[in-house]
Design a protein around this nucleic acid. Structure first.
Lengths: 226, 226
DNA sequence: CCGACTCGAATTGTATACAATAAGGATGTT
DNA sequence: AACATCCTTATTGTATACAATTCGAGTCGG
């Protein structure tokens, strides 16, 4: 991560993910270059990558903005993710070897520890959860699937609101992982697919509920400052 | 398409698609810049885009090569395409309006003309076929789905071998489009999904058969020149 | 008051020079 | 002959200057 374009990439990415830059904010190359302490060249590189990640969008005249997502857009993304990650789970189940299964069990057990702590350690939960899903995608053994899913999983809005999960949600999520493990142990691809698809869809509805709340709050705040 | 980076993009892309550059060939920035008549800057831009298209791959040290695909990789891509484009067809069926349906009918009828000419006009077939599929993806009304499918449809190897389709295959393909139209007319999403998925899978096997033949020929030729 | 137009400022696109790094071959050692 | 090491050369990364576009404010005419 010593190359300037990598620094620019992760700096800008972090600014977007953290909300420091809000959806719709303009991203001038010069301004970003200054904030990242590099020249425009690596910034342009970084913007291209972030555009591929769909964290940045461009007008027809090549001006960049922080990508803005409607709830409909997000619903689409979750639907695709449910389908693709379900497919990944199916392939993983059909190709599962004992080493990977063991790693998944270990990962989910660490995840459970994070959930059962009081208060639950949400950051560690997110980290382990990411690792769990990554292991499955890896085990599916399809290069293209990896790259497609990457662009569908990295949704800043989603990760930002994961902190609003209740203890209830976290425990249920953990339980679904257990069921996934059972499906893997039996090498039952269709079962794994069904569980994973449901798992993602539940996550969407949890997100949508939280989002409605947030939007209401935002609107109230906006009205107050207007 | 007047910007230098666009020229570089389409020039390099065309060199790859046409086979002028073979899988595994190194892609030096300077050499490409000279061949495209531009400086290295737009070439770097173009390479990034082509990498996102998965037409170009890079080593860990950022050296670029024409991407190489094993038959397994290609099978993966077709599987994903079948799933995603089936999903697109389903959504399209559920959202179909009469205008789009009419456009699809007109498109398929032009496609049929190209097939029934003697000899069949394969180039026009490909063009219309592309348009037909694009209309459906458009009608699915999901931005993200558009971008995912784009990266899965643009497979150079595939298009290059489409010319080996027999008249038989072409006619069958046309018939499947008819059935798709019937599913759209009834707004039957599940039906449309099933047809589309099968349609893509058939295309894969046609490709795989042709590819086995081509590989055999290649190997013979290689042995001769070695 | 509204719309088309113009011109200046801001922003992106491209070329080029130079710095940093990696690949490939020569050299010497075991 | 096999192998590690150094050095040369080729290639990529970055900064910067300048050209080409685009945006928007201000102006003019209807």
């Amino acid at each position: 991560m010593s190359r300037a374009s990598d620094r620019a990439y992760s700096t800008i990415r972090e600014m977007i993910m953290s909300g420091e830059l809000a959806p719709g904010d303009p991203l001038g190359e010069e301004a970003l270059a200054e904030r990242c302490g590099v020249s425009r060249t690596p910034v342009r590189d970084a913007l291209r990558r972030l555009e591929a990640d769909m964290l940045v969008s461009r007008t027809d005249t090549q001006r960049s903005f922080v990508a803005d997502w409607s709830l409909d857009d997000i619903a689409d993304v979750f639907e695709l993710r449910a389908m693709l990650e379900g497919h990944a789970a199916q392939r993983a189940a059909e190709r599962m070897d004992d080493g990977t299964l063991k790693a998944l069990r270990r990962c989910n057990s660490a995840l459970r520890d994070a959930v059962q702590a009081s208060p639950p350690d949400v950051d560690r939960f997110l980290e382990r959860n990411k690792e769990f899903h990554a292991l499955i995608i890896e085990a599916a053994g399809s290069r293209k699937l990896v790259s497609l899913l990457a662009s569908v999983i990295e949704q800043p809005v989603v990760w930002r609101t994961a902190h609003h999960y209740g203890a209830e949600e976290l425990r249920r999520s953990c339980g679904e992982h257990d069921e996934l493990l059972a499906a893997f142990a039996r090498r039952d691809g269709a079962w794994a697919n069904a569980i994973m698809s449901g798992h993602i869809r539940r996550a969407f509805h949890a997100y949508a509920d939280a989002h409605r709340g947030l939007t209401a709050i935002d609107n109230r705040a906006r009205r107050r400052t207007a």
